[in-house]
Computed example of a mutant assay.
Amino acid sequence: MKEFFSLLFLALSSIAFSQEKLVKVNGHSFNIYLKGFEQRKANSPVIIFENGMGMGLGNWDSIIDEMAKITPVFAYDRSGVGKSEKVFQLPTPKLVSENLKAILTTLNIQPPYVLVGHSMGGLYSRAFAGFYPNDITGLVFIDPADFTESKQEWNSIFRTIGVPEKRIDEMLYNRLYKVSPIDSLNYGPWSEAQVLGALRRTDFAEISSLPVPNVPIYFFIGGKFEVPLELRSKDFDQEKFFTVRTNINIERWKKFIYSSNKGGSLIYLSKSGHFVHRDDAKAVIGNLKIMLESLNN
Rank of each mutant, 00 (worst) to 15 (best):
M1V: 11
M1I: 09
E3R: 09
F4M: 13
F4H: 11
F4W: 13
F5R: 10
L10E: 09
S13N: 14
S13F: 14
Q19S: 14
N26D: 15
F30I: 08
I32Y: 03
Y33G: 08
L34T: 11
L34N: 00
K41V: 10
S44V: 02
V46T: 15
N51A: 15
G52L: 04
G54W: 10
G58K: 09
S62P: 07
D65Y: 07
D65A: 06
M67S: 04
I70K: 07
Y76A: 06
D77C: 10
R78Y: 05
V81F: 05
K83S: 12
K86F: 00
V87T: 08
V87I: 15
Q89P: 02
Q89Y: 12
L90Q: 07
P91Y: 09
L100P: 03
T105A: 12
I109R: 06
I109S: 05
P111R: 06
G117Y: 01
S119L: 09
M120V: 00
G121S: 09
R126N: 03
Y132S: 10
I136R: 05
I136L: 13
A145R: 02
A145M: 14
D146P: 05
T148A: 00
S156N: 15
R159A: 06
I161W: 07
I161S: 04
G162H: 12
M171L: 15
R175D: 10
K178G: 00
V179M: 06
V179R: 03
N186S: 12
W190A: 06
Q194P: 12
R201G: 04
F204V: 03
F204N: 02
F219W: 09
V227L: 12
R232P: 02
K234E: 10
Q238S: 12
K240P: 00
F242Q: 01
V244M: 06
R245W: 01
S259T: 08
N261F: 04
K262A: 13
K262S: 10
G263N: 07
Y268W: 09
Y268S: 07
L269R: 01
S270G: 04
D280T: 13
N287S: 14
L288W: 01
L292M: 12
E293N: 15
S294I: 03
